[in-house]
Each structure stands twice: as C-alpha cells, then as structure tokens.
Amino acid sequence: MDNLLVKTGSSLKTFFTELGGISIMVFKAFAAIRIRHNFIPQIIEQFILIGKKSLPLVVVTSAFMGLAIGVQVGFQMTGFTPHWIAGGMILRTILIDLGPITIGLVLSGRISAGIAAELGTMKVTEQVDALRSFAIDPIGYLVTPRLIAAIFSVPALLVFSNSIAILLSYVSCNMTIHITWNEFVQGMRYSFYVSDLMTSLIKSLVFGVVLISLGAYFGLNCQRGAKGVGSATTLAVVWASVSVFVLDYVISTIVFYA
C-alpha cells in the first residue's frame, strides 16, 4: 500500500513538473512573438506543413467519419421518426464533438509526433545548442512560428473537416433512409446554434496550441540518442491524444454549463 502511494505521488509529481514546464514554454513562445521579416517565411512554411500537408489525411478521416455517422443515424431513424431530425443530430454531433476530436487525434499523430521527432533530433545533434550559441532563442525560433501557424491552420482544417463529414454523412443517410437534401438541410437549420460553431472553433484552436506545445516540449527536452528521440515522440503522442479528450470535456462543460 505504501509502495502504491509512493508510486502515485511520484507520478503526480512528474505530471505536474511536466505540466509546469509546458506552461512556461508556451508562455515564453507567446512572449517571443514579434514581427521580424526573417521569421515570416518560417511561419508560412509551418502553415503549409501543419495545414496544407495535413489536408489529405484530414479529408480521408473526416469523410469516413461522416459516412459512418450517417449510417448510424440513419439506422436510428426507423419507424415514425421524421427524417429531417437526422440533419440536426448529425450537425450538432459533428460540430460539438466528433469534428474537433477527429482533428485532434489525427493531428496528434501527425503534428505532435513530427515536431517531437524533429526537435528531438535537433536537440541530440546539438543543433539546438548551436542556435543558442549564435544568440538565437530556440523557443522563439522553433516553437513560436509553429504556434502561430497552428492558430490559423488548425481551425481552417476543422472547417474543411466538418464540411466534408457533414456532406458525406448526408450521402450515407440518403443511401440508408433515402433522406432528401431539403429534409437534411431543414434539420440542420432547426438545430443550428452559433454557440456550437464557436465551441467547435475554440476546441480546434486550443487543440492546435496544445498539440504543437506538447510536441515541441518533449522534443526540446529529449534525452540522448535515438532512444531519447523515440521516447520523446511516444510521450508527445500519448500526452496529445489524452489531452484532446480531456480538453474536449473541459471546454464542453465550460461552454454549456458555465
């Protein structure tokens, strides 16, 4: 029992130490924001990496997520339930939860892991020390442009993702319960709330910042060698995936009950 308490205490201590380290890094990254012409190409490069290059993956996952939810909702619409209800159910489900969670999970694998591996390799090959030796702040140079790019690109990806998922869910609903486009849109109109859209965008914004921060933090604090880079990448993906679910719950609670 004592051993269990010691282990729990030690894990909690590690958790809060990491959380503190991540918070400090994010603060420093935002504090380092300044308009310097030679950082703008970097922001554009990161915008392309995070946004444009993630688009095919986001399109495919969102399409199948939409098709699956369309089939599921269609299956529930048996008996005397009016078909137009399907449009509203799908819209709210995708906007509030499924869209942001899908984006969050897809990007935790693609972006957080990628950043952790890239910065981790830079750390173990002394490239991060080289930046410091030339008076370049590694957080300002490596993390800030990625955060700025994520703030714009992740919500944009979400808009794509939600649109594709909703469209494809209509297709699968149409195939299962023969709902018409007008009925589907009517249901969406009845159930649309601006707060749902805002919740979706807020979640994507927060996920973007968190996923980048986790990847960067574990990369920059990577231990020696290939094993260290591997561990950093794994930690980034695990923390990112769990954070997506925790933050989804927290933001939903704040928006709908606070």
């Binding site: 830079m122 002394e126 490239q127 020390d129 080289a130 030796s133």
Partner: peptide, 10 residues
C-alpha cells in the same frame, strides 16, 4: 563562436 564536434549545422 563555437565550432561543435559534429558541426551541428542546421
């Protein structure tokens, strides 16, 4: 200026 052991070029 510091010349690193393995170069540490970016």
């Amino acid at each position: 200026s510091f010349v690193f052991q393995d170069g540490a070029l970016w």
